[in-house]
């Protein structure tokens, strides 16, 4: 699909520190886009899981709406960084580009969410419901991964690793779960322990994927605070711990989940910022990016 996948050049520390000193700027709209769509995607995943587990039924209608709204907000954020949005329709002309894939997955995810919502409201057959929930979840989770995958470019030495999109997906996971858990607690679901445990898992995944990318890209050494402090500890270890607490103290789930969501938001955001700051191109002769 894209060029240059066959040859991968791992950046080394020395190269990262000594390359043309012109840091890429953090593209906030793209950070927001990937955080929010990732959160929405993983919320849908929780919805799908519950379709099978059946523990938090009452939450799903609300959750799917919130997921869709959050993802939409992300989509809108992404457009704000374009200088010529009037030409945006042109984006449909080039189906292999990262933006096209992201836009398509966002659209598909939204469609599934809406259909699922309609099926829920109409109390349609469980089979159809489950099918759309799962579809939406697959698109959503895939989106959280593909949003990072778009940045895997042979030119970008510090980005061109599958660990990057794994981290995108990994850091979005506990955020989506925490939001779902918070909604469930708010709806006073009697048994949220499954999702509390999922939050623990999500926290661990986030911590591991963020750490792995941090180490491999060199960002872990360059921007230790962002990677270790925010992405790994605040965005991974902390929600995992809060999830564990939530599993044990059902009466405090709401506040714990809300706190976890805030931590995850910070962690996922930090992770993405890390990527922008870690950019090492093969060359950046004009130093203009």
């Amino acid at each position: 699909m894209r060029s240059g996948r066959n040859r991968r050049i791992w950046p080394d520390r020395a190269a990262i520190c000594r390359k043309m000193v012109s840091r890429m700027e953090i593209q906030w709209s793209l950070v927001l886009f990937t955080v929010l769509t990732g959160a929405g995607g993983w919320m849908l995943a929780c919805v799908a899981i519950d379709e099978f587990a059946g523990k938090t039924r009452a939450t799903n209608k609300l959750a799917v709406v919130v997921a869709a709204v959050v993802a939409c907000a992300g989509g809108i954020a992404s457009v704000t960084h374009l200088s010529h949005p009037e030409h945006i329709m042109g984006a449909l002309s080039h189906p292999t580009s990262g933006i096209f894939v992201e836009a398509a997955l966002t659209g598909l995810m939204a469609v599934c969410a809406i259909v699922y919502f309609v099926l829920l409201v109409r109390e349609a057959s469980a089979g159809a419901r489950k099918a759309f929930a799962v579809l939406g979840a697959v698109f959503g989770v895939l989106l959280s991964f593909m949003a990072g995958e778009s940045y895997m470019m042979s030119s970008q030495l510090a980005w061109n690793t599958p660990l990057l999109p794994l981290g995108y997906a990994g850091t979005a996971m506990p955020l989506g779960v925490a939001l779902y858990l918070a909604l469930a607690a708010w709806r006073k679901e009697p048994d949220t322990s499954l999702f509390a445990k999922l939050l623990v898992a999500g926290g661990v995944v986030a911590a591991l994927t963020a750490a792995a990318y941090g180490v491999v890209s060199g960002a872990g050494a360059d921007q230790a605070l962002l990677v270790w402090g925010l992405a790994v500890i605040v965005g991974g270890a902390a929600p995992a711990a809060l999830g564990a607490l939530a599993a044990k103290t059902p009466e405090q789930v709401l506040s714990l989940a809300a706190a976890a969501a805030v931590c995850c938001l910070a962690g996922a955001t930090a992770y993405r910022c890390t990527m922008w700051l870690a950019s090492v191109t093969v060359n950046n002769f004009f130093g203009l990016l």
Partner: peptide, 27 residues
Amino acid sequence: KAKCIGCKYCMMACPYGVRSWNKEERV
């Protein structure tokens, strides 16, 4: 330039950083 939305992906993708941002036209 008439089709460019200014997303700068191409600038990120160019291995040599030899693309320019036209501030005035934002392309």
